[in-house]
Nucleic acid binder design. Structure first.
Length: 684
RNA sequence: GCCGACUUGGCGCAAUUGGUAGCGCAACGCUCUUGUAAAGCGUAGGUUGCGGGUUCGAGUCCCGCAGUCGGCUCCA
């Protein structure tokens, strides 16, 4: 049977026509993907819906679709095959290395190895070289079905693979990575065959499918980083050494990917936070505990002030609660039961001892609060509640402390001290649906105010291992959330098992300026706490009823939201958020008084403006404030003074010269009031 | 918490095989500055994250701790 088609002359016209279409074999000839698809970019195919190698034999009745290398499936196959090449290279260099798993992941792949010495970056060069050699050799990936016994015999030196073979029989071979190895209906080994000698040079237990030849990997791959990873994802298991790589159909696409990473690195909020003097993490205070500098403080306050305006305009009542509480409260709320690991350890206070060291007064445990809801429940419970008060919406910028593991801390996005914009809404059961819809609308509208406007929703449903309440409650609430989500018209992604133990939730995911998604707001039902806290209200008929509780965080944490906005805007904030909104630069010092007058008008109108009277030259000042991301520079010299005007310079270097002062002041005020993002000269 | 890498003045970086810390920016001072991204000269600033050890000698080597980064696990 004809096999290799890579590198031969192909009929691209036919390939183009065939691409993406289902075809049915005509006549009676037995065929395979090579015969069927002549387009070189076709690397695999879907046969009756299943991904298969091109070498798979096709029958007359098969419905076959081509899988091109640039499709999602094709990229995954490319990356998976590249992972195999990496593993082969590793074992060529270090025959002692034992294989873990090597699946494709977003934008790349990884392969886990058990090696005596962890990999370092220095290992990459020889590994890449070896991979190049394997790729140029044009090894064929050849699928071979084996029995369990055969597989065990062939892989006797690969203990991890043997473990996977053992798992296949069991019920728990469900993990995404593992299923790449043994997830198929039958056990298969992929042989890497030297096309010249026909000799098998390497092999791996694998479900496939794979590229027809290593040659198709080309030069669009790169090794990225090393890491350790627990075998089969459990910290109870030993750690393997993982190498991450990326692979693309062409070198250009690889370069584009690397450029995207660089763009993201440029926006890194930790870097910008330092450069723009916004915040820091003093070692003296402790890991994951941020301090906001004056400029960061302005941004943070603007974020909060806008939020407060929105809350008040939407029927919320602002409350305030302490940061520390007796342990009993978190026993009532069950946090000490479910989440003690994530809480700072107790402070044991008020115990007294006599001279003999005997306890004379019982002390008690106080905890830093990891959540605000128990405190809000106490406010609800502070007096009798009537159905007339519902929905009762309590909101707070509540600072909480969580003992995150040291290895998980990361800039402002994962901290130990954070301020949640936290709201708890207590409603009668028949108000749930309307309130949820209202909340979702409120959340989206508010996020748009911050300049985010590309959203999708995620519905997190019951984790069968970890939940309270009845199945009926969950089903009803989940269905309500689903309806509200569907009514919003936004894309809805299911997150099965992702809910917290006390209720299902909807979360809003926002895409930022460079297409990354962040989980922001959550709207979450809670059947548990109203019961634990014995919350109730007097219904119209005088009976006592239990309210339903809705947790609603809009920004997540202020710190994390700050980081997201900082990266979204790459430090160049919309006018209303910018720490310095206007800097005035005189062409020479003698024009400074003229600008002082204009700036005085601006500051008295609430604009954050100043005149740069340092003894730098004008060009230097322009540079300083451009790199400092000040959105508006006002420049004046002889011409503007004579004309009673002023000249604007914008962040991208565009200018608007000779603007009458009254007009300039008014335009600036308007841009702030309307939350404009001003990066270039505005069109009048 | 686990694995690995890293930690030099406010920031970004240098310091041959271990020989006793330099540069740029920022800061400060002086002189200069007339139209849109870096004027010139000078001054000050570091017990090289912290604590031990090896050595005649440690920023360089070893051990411990802390912090940061990349992953894993976790994320109410």
């Amino acid at each position: 049977m004809p096999r290799r088609r890579i590198g031969r002359t192909t009929d691209l016209r036919r390939g183009d026509r065939v691409r993406g279409q289902r075809t049915r074999l005509e006549g009676t000839a037995v065929s395979d993907g090579f015969a069927r698809f002549t387009d070189r970019s076709v690397v695999a195919m879907r046969v009756n819906g299943d991904l298969k190698d091109l070498a798979t034999t096709l029958t007359v009745d098969d419905v076959v679709e081509p899988v091109t290398i640039d499709s999602a499936d094709g990229l995954a196959i490319l990356r998976h095959s590249t992972a195999h090449v990496l593993a082969q290279a590793v074992q060529r260099i270090n025959p002692e290395a034992r294989l873990g798993i090597g699946p494709p992941v977003t934008d790349g792949f990884y392969y886990d190895f058990d090696v005596a010495e962890p990999f370092t970056l220095e290992d990459f060069k020889p590994l890449q070289k070896e991979m190049d050699r394997i790729i140029r050799q044009g090894q064929r990936f050849v699928r071979r079905v084996v029995t369990e016994d055969e597989a065990r015999a062939e892989l006797e030196n690969e203990p991890y693979k043997l473990e996977l073979i053992g798992l296949k029989g069991g019920s728990d071979a469900g993990d995404a990575g593992e299923s790449v190895e043994v997830g198929g209906a039958e056990l298969t080994i992929y042989d890497n065959v030297d096309p010249k000698s026909g000799e098998t040079v390497w092999k791996d237990l694998c479900r496939g499918p794979h590229l027809p030849s290593t040659r198709m990997i080309g030069n669009g791959f790169a090794l990225m980083r090393v890491a350790a990873a627990y075998w089969r994802g459990s910290e109870k298991n030993p750690q393997l050494q993982r190498i991450y790589g990326t692979a693309w159909p062409t070198k250009d696409e690889l370069r584009a990917y690397q450029a995207r990473l660089e763009e993201a690195a440029k926006r890194d909020h930790r870097k910008l936070g330092r450069e723009l003097d916004l915040f820091s993490f003093p070692e003296e205070i402790g890991s994951g505990l941020a301090v906001f500098h004056p400029r960061g403080g302005i941004i943070r306050n603007e974020i909060e002030n806008y939020m407060r305006e929105r809350l008040i305009a939407n029927g919320y009542e602002l409350v305030n609660t302490p940061h520390i509480t007796k342990g009993h409260l978190f026993e009532t709320s069950q946090h000490l039961n479910w989440y003690k690991e994530g809480m700072f350890p107790a402070m044991h206070l008020d115990a007294e001892y006599d001279a003999d060291g005997e306890l004379t007064r019982q002390g008690q445990d106080y905890y830093l609060k990891p959540m605000n809801c128990p405190m809000h429940n106490l406010i609800y419970r502070a007096r009798g509640r009537s159905y007339r008060e519902l929905p009762l919406r309590l909101a707070e910028f509540g600072t909480v402390y969580r003992y995150e593991k040291s290895g998980t801390l990361s800039g402002l996005t994962r901290v130990r001290g954070l301020t949640q914009d936290d709201a708890h809404i207590y409603v009668a059961p028949d108000q749930v649906k309307e309130e949820l819809a209202r909340q979702l609308e409120f959340v989206l509208e508010t996020l748009r105010g911050y300049g985010l406007n590309d959203f999708y929703l995620e519905l997190s449903t019951k984790d069968p291992e970890k939940f309270v309440g009845t199945d009926e409650m969950w089903e009803e609430a989940t269905e309500t959330l689903r309806q509200v989500a569907v009514d919003s018209g936004l894309e809805l992604v299911p997150d099965p098992g992702g809910a917290a133990f006390y209720g299902p939730k909807i979360s809003v995911q926002a895409r930022d300026a460079i297409g990354r998604t962040w989980q922001l707001s959550t709207v979450q039902l809670d059947f548990n706490q109203p019961e634990l806290f014995e919350l109730e209200y007097a219904a119209a008929d005088g009976s006592r009823q239990q309210p339903v509780m809705i947790h609603r965080a809009l920004l997540g944490s202020i710190e994390r939201f700050f980081a997201i906005l900082l990266e979204h805007y790459a430090g160049a904030f919309p006018l209303w958020l910018a720490p310095e909104q206007v800097v005035a630069i005189p062409v020479a010092d003698e024009y400074a008084p003229y600008l002082e007058e204009i700036v005085a008008r601006l500051t008295s109108a609430g604009v954050r403006a100043s005149v740069d009277r340092s003894d730098d030259r004008m060009q230097k000042k322009i540079r300083t404030h451009t790199t400092g991301k000040v959105p508006l520079q006002l420049i004046a010299g002889e011409q503007d003074v004579a004309g009673g005007s002023v000249s604007f310079r914008f962040l991208d270097g565009t200018q608007l010269n000779g603007v009458p002062v009254d007009e300039a002041v008014e335009r600036i005020r308007r841009a702030i009031a309307e939350k404009e993002l001003v990066l270039t000269a505005w069109a009048e």
